[in-house]
Each structure stands twice: as C-alpha cells, then as structure tokens.
Design a protein around this nucleic acid. Structure first.
Lengths: 159, 159
DNA sequence: TATTGTTATACTCTATAACTATA
DNA sequence: TATAGTTATAGAGTATAACAATA
C-alpha cells in the first residue's frame, strides 16, 4: 500500500535531516541556525530590514534582535540610506562574509555527500522536482544562489 | 551550468518550505513545532525519555522542559515503569492524541497539496529518492508512519 | 560506578504591544 | 497617516553543569 501519504512523511523527515545537518555545521562555525540563515541571505548583497522580515518569515522585533546579536559579534553592519533616513540596510562585514562563505561551502559539501550514493540521473530528477516545488510555492532564496537576482515581495518601486 | 551545487540549495529551501508550513499548522492547533514533533513521535506508542532524546536530537534537560510544558497542558502523561523505577515513559492523553491526529492529518494534507501539481510519476520518484536518503542517513521516524516499528538506537534489551 | 531524570542557570529565538522618527 | 525600526516584555527552546535516585 504505497499510497502517497508517504510523500508527506518523506518531506518532513528529509527536512529534519537537513535541519540537523545545518545545525551541526552552524555549531562548527559558532553560529545559531537563525544567524547563519540571515547571513546566507545577505551573503551576496545587502538587504533592508523589511525585506529580510519577508524572506525569513520573522516579525520586525525578532529581526532587530537577531541583527543586534550578529552585529555585536562584528559579523554584519547596519548601513543607512540616503533616500529614506528611516531605512536600514544590513550588510556583512569582511569577517562576516568570510565566515558565511565557509559555512555555505560546508553545508553544500555535506548535503552533496548525503545524495552522493544516488545515481546521477536520480539526483538530477530530484533536484528538478524540488525546484519545481520551490518555485511554485515561491520559497525565498534563503540559501543564496548568486545567480538568482533575489525575489523581493516588498518590491513596490519607491512610494 | 546546472552543476549539482543546485541540489544543496534545493534541499535547504525545500526544508525551509516544510518548516514554514509545519509551523503554520502548529499555530492553528496552538502547538509549538517542538511540541508537535514530540507528540507525533509518541502518537502511536509511548516512549522513554532517553529514547526521545535520541530521536529528537535533544539533550536531557531540554526534553524535560518540553515534556513539562506539554504535560502542564494535559496533552501527555509521564508514566512509570515496573522494571526500572528511574525510567519514565511518555504517553499522550486522549485529548493529546486527538490533537496530534488532527495536526498530523492537516500537515499531511498540506504537504500533499504542495506536490499536487506534479505528475504522478514524478511524485513517486521523488518519494522514492527521499526515502532512499532518509534510510541511508538513518533519519528517525519523527513523523509517525504507524507501519514503521520505530527504530530505537537505544535498543539494548535490558541486557 | 553508570544511568535516568531533574534542577539551576543562561542565552537565543520569536511574538505582541507600544514607541520614535521619518515620509 | 502610514511606514521603518526599535524598545519592552514574556515565553518557548535548548545547552552545560550539578544533583538525586536507582541499577
């Protein structure tokens, strides 16, 4: 009875595996998962607080605290804008960027190991299906692929 | 350049999607993700604290607190054993079981919706690949499929 | 002595409500 | 008035260290 109820359990358990592995790598870099996630999001470009709020699915105050803690460790900076003096752009410091690149590479490496036992065809097909889901569901680019220009749901060109 | 770096991002973002959806359903049932996860693990059978610690990847004190909070809400009970008076078995109360079943069904339903747009063949193949990964990596059955007898890493038959 | 849990403590994460400054 | 962020507050989650009871 291989009905498709199994696909839900597969997704939940796969997610559990990824989270666990992600957290392990975080530990090695002395980051919390939330910190690492934010840092990956701004890895290749600074972002505004509100935009980050949407990408990470957090409320404003939660993000403020998260940014505070990372900033306190010298891994990112808050920069101000000339157009809107209320707005804040969050950018990695050189040291933050360094750590993020290393973290990113290690997660990537670990996840590749996890699928390494699969035939190349299966890997390709799995990736295609996963991306089909991700795109359909508009999952934000929280694990930075530099290629993707960043979809910002906030987009509303000034005013 | 569709190199296989993409599969890591796919896994991380897919995991993010699942977590987000999981958290949303949690909210509707007034549960935290950690609480729901524990409840799903003991949905079909009571478990010992140490065993839960392994399945959920928590330290003992964290689990104690988690169990405390769920117990305080009347959704589970700590039961004692006759063999070992130190040991505690954690079991759902009828009300806890009710809530867990509803939660479980809703998550399952939501995740099925997420893959509904895919051809049946792709769904099957995706599920197969996911399970291949899960089994290879020994991911615990944290989203209870009653069929699976529960792999307990603690297993050491009294001695 | 080793194991099962718990208590004490500390920090991160995150939400809601209320506030400040700017638009 | 609406928007961008922050501050205040509270509770959940989780780790480490120290402790209690039982094996």
């Amino acid at each position: 009875m291989a009905d498709n109820r199994g696909i839900s359990a597969a997704l939940v358990r796969l997610s559990f595996l990824v989270q666990r592995l992600y957290a392990q790598v975080c530990g090695r870099h002395d980051l919390s998962p939330a910190q690492a996630q934010l840092m990956c999001v701004i890895k290749d470009q600074p972002r505004g607080m509100t935009e980050l709020t949407h990408m990470l699915g957090l409320e404003r105050p939660g993000l403020t605290g998260l940014v505070d803690r990372i900033e306190r460790r010298g891994l990112l900076r808050r920069e101000t804008t000339r157009h809107d003096r209320r707005a804040v752009m969050v950018a990695l410091t050189p040291r933050g960027k360094e750590i993020t690149e290393a973290f990113f590479a290690e997660v990537t490496d670990n996840l590749q190991r996890v699928v390494a036992h699969l035939p190349a065809d299966d890997q390709r097909q799995f990736e295609d299906t996963a991306f089909s889901i991700i795109l359909t569901e508009h999952v934000p680019a929280i694990f930075g692929d530099p290629e993707a220009p960043a979809a910002d749901p906030t987009r509303q060109e000034s005013q």
